[in-house]
Design a protein around this nucleic acid. Sequence first.
DNA 1: TATATACTTGAGCGATCACTCAAGAAAGCA
DNA 2: TGCTTTCTTGAGTGATCGCTCAAGTATATA
Lengths: 194, 194
Amino acid sequence: MVTWMPRKPSYDRDALIDRARDVFWRQGWAGTSLKDLERELKLNPGSFYAAFGSKDALYALALQRYAQEGVARLTALAERLGAKGALQEQPRLVIEATGAPAKACMLAKTYAELQAKDHELAGQAGVHMAEMKACFADLFRRAQEAGEISPDHDPERLATRYQSDLLGLRLSAERSNVDARAVAADIAADIDRL
Amino acid sequence: MVTWMPRKPSYDRDALIDRARDVFWRQGWAGTSLKDLERELKLNPGSFYAAFGSKDALYALALQRYAQEGVARLTALAERLGAKGALQEQPRLVIEATGAPAKACMLAKTYAELQAKDHELAGQAGVHMAEMKACFADLFRRAQEAGEISPDHDPERLATRYQSDLLGLRLSAERSNVDARAVAADIAADIDRL
DNA sequence: TATATACTTGAGCGATCACTCAAGAAAGCA
DNA sequence: TGCTTTCTTGAGTGATCGCTCAAGTATATA
C-alpha cells in the first residue's frame, strides 16, 4: 500500500474559521451570504464546500470556536485576578475589546435570530450559553469558598443574573449614546455588595 | 369637482400592521419573507405594495407601533402603581406576556440584526430605544421626587442600567433552562435598595 | 343602469440565494 | 520525467428573494 500526499490546501483552515466567526459575529446568519464568505476567506465556492461542507457547518464551527475562546479567556482571567476579580473585570473587558467585530455576544445574537425557526444552530448557541453560565456559577462558588463574597446566595442564581446582566450590557454597548462603561462599572459594583 | 369613492380596501390596515409587527418581532427582518407576510396578512403582492410600499416601510410602521404601545403600557402602569411600582412590575410583565410573539425586545433584535449593515431600520430602532430610556429616566426621577427611592443617584444613569438589565432579562427569557422570573425578581429587588 | 375609480389578482421580472461539478493546475512519489 | 491524487477554479444549477404591472373585479356616484 502506498500513501499519497500529492497536495496540501493552500489555506490555514483554523485561521479561516476565525475569520468566518468574525464575519458571522458581525453580520449574523442570514446577513452573511456565501459571496461574503468567499470574499472574506478568499475561497472559491468549490474550495469552500470541500473545506466546510456548508454554510451552516462553518457557522457551527465558528460558534464552537467563539465559545471555547470565551471560556478560555475567562479561565485565564480568573487565574490572574481570582474568582471575584475575574467576575468584576469581565464586564469591562467585553465592552472594550477593540479588536472584536461586535460588542454583543455572538451566542445571544445567534439564538435571538434563529430560535423562532427552530434552527439547529440556535440550539447549539443555547448549549454554549449554558456552558458559559456554568463557568460563571463556578466562579461565584469559588469566590464564596475564598471568602470574597457572602456564602448566603445561591451561585446558580447569581450566575443566571450575572449572565443576563452581561447580555444586556453587551447589547447596550453596541449602541452609541449609551454609556456602557457606566453600566459595566455598576455590574462590577453589584458584586461588591454580595 | 366630483369626489369619487368607488371602493374601500377589504382589509383593516391598522390590524395588518399589528400582525406584521408580530411576524417581524418573532422572525426578524431577514427571517421574514414577502411570502410570509402575504400568507400572514392574506394579501397578494399587489395589494401589499399598494398598502405599504415596501417590506422595509411596513417594518418601520411595525417598529413604531411596537414602541408606541410600549410607552403607553408603561405610562398606564405608572398611573396604576406609581413610578417605583411600575419600574418594579415591568420586568415581571415583559417576560410573562403570554400573548406576545417573543420575549426579547423587538427594538433590540432589530438593532442587533441590522446595525452592522448600517440599515436605516437599525437607526430607527435606536431612536425608539432612546425614547424608552427617557421614559425610564422620567420614572426614576418621579420616584425620587415622591421619596420612593433615594435622590442620591443620577436618574439617567439608573435608566441606562435599568434598560440594559431589561434587555438582558428579555433575551434570557427566550431560553428555556433559564429562570427568568428569578432574574426579574432580582431586578425589582435592586430598586428597593436605591 | 352606466361610468369612473380604486382595489385585487397572480404571473412573472431581474437579482441573489446556497450550492454543484467538470475541467485544469499543482505537488508528492516513482 | 511521468503518474496519481488532491486542490482550485468559476460558470452554472434550481430555488427563492423583493417587487412590478397589466388585466380583471367590485363599488359609489350620476
